[in-house]
Simulated assay, not measured.
Amino acid sequence: MDDLFDGQPREERIAPGAWLLHGFVSEIADTLLDAARQVAVQAPFRHMLTPGGHRMSAAMTNCGTAGWVSDAHGYRYQRTDPDTGKPWPSMPEVFRQLAKQAAATAGFPDFIPDACLINRYQPGTRLSLHQDRNERDINAPIVSVSLGLPAIFLFGGNRRSNKPQRYRLAHGDVAVWGGPSRLAYHGVAPIANGHHPATGECRINLTLRKAL
């Protein structure tokens, strides 16, 4: 597949091994959203519960070989949708290709994701600071795609006590982090009220990972 975008994104290094690629997927944003909607037809968005029984504020679904789930038994990846017992929908090829290109741009060649978490954020929804550490191979980076309403991305260090920095992510931006920043604490501040022509009153986030 040829490059997914026609222009050149603005690359912003935010930490060792961590980059923001502004506008990286702007040209194919509608294609990505259509693909995400098709995934959600097969595996609808749902609000998972934390192991402590709290309802997560962002609605979520998955596609790929494995999907991330949370329930009373803990956080983990599994190959089947717990709501249906069926395998998660296949990952759209356009997701795989954008992740490969974004990772390579950030200095991580040969990244091939096997899982994509799709989060839907309504105004007021947030994501608490956390590490992504359920993946078997933490040598592989994380690739995160922002679509729709803007978000304030919180990115800190490898200790929870490190104060996170705040970065604005707009429609079409991609964040990539790996290497020394792979286990950095990160999150999303509450989404502000607004309307985006592509998504309406929500933000869609694609997070591509090598889980298994």
Rank of each mutant, 00 (worst) to 15 (best):
R96N: 14
I112N: 10
V94I: 14
A103N: 13
I118P: 09
S146V: 15
L98G: 00
N139F: 10
L127Y: 05
C116S: 11
Q131N: 06
Y121Q: 01
P87S: 08
T105N: 12
E135P: 00
R136M: 07
F108K: 15
F153W: 12
G107L: 12
N139D: 14
N162A: 12
T125E: 00
R133Y: 11
G148C: 05
Q122R: 10
F155N: 11
P164Y: 14
S146H: 13
F108D: 11
R136F: 03
W88R: 07
S161G: 05
I142Y: 06
Q97G: 03
P92F: 00
N158E: 14
S144Y: 13
E135T: 06
L127F: 09
S161D: 15
A102G: 15
L154T: 09
N158T: 14
D132H: 08
F108I: 13
P123Y: 05
L98I: 10
A140S: 11
H130L: 01
L149H: 06
R126V: 11
L117R: 08
L129V: 06
L117N: 11
F155H: 08
G148F: 01
I112F: 10
R166S: 14
P150G: 00
F155M: 02
A140Y: 01
I112Y: 12
G148N: 12
R168D: 12
P164M: 14
L154K: 13
W88K: 10
Y167D: 06
N158D: 10
C116M: 13
P109K: 01
V145H: 00
R126M: 09
K163N: 12
R126N: 14
A104L: 15
P141W: 01
D137G: 01
D110H: 13
V145F: 02
Y121F: 00
S144A: 00
A140E: 06
A106N: 13
V143N: 03
G157T: 00
H130T: 04
L129D: 04
W88Y: 12
A115Y: 11
S90C: 03
Q97A: 01
A102C: 11
L154F: 09
D137H: 02
T105I: 11
F108G: 13
F155Y: 08
L117E: 03
S146T: 13
F108V: 12
P109S: 11
I138E: 07
L129H: 08
L127C: 05
F95R: 08
N139A: 09
S144N: 09
I118W: 09
T125S: 03
I142W: 04
S128N: 06
Y167A: 05
F108R: 07
A115S: 15
I142V: 05
H130D: 05
V94A: 04
P150H: 00
P87N: 05
L147P: 07
R168Y: 02
A103R: 07
G156N: 04
T105F: 00
S128F: 03
Q131P: 03
N158L: 10
S146L: 12
R126A: 14
A140H: 01
D114A: 13
P89S: 06
P92E: 05
Y167H: 15
L127R: 11
A170P: 14
E135V: 02
S128R: 08
G157L: 04
R160D: 09
Q97P: 07
L129E: 05
A99M: 03
D132T: 02
F153T: 00
N158H: 08
Q131S: 00
S90K: 15
Q97V: 14
N139G: 14
D137E: 05
L154E: 11
N134W: 04
F111P: 15
L117M: 03
K163A: 13
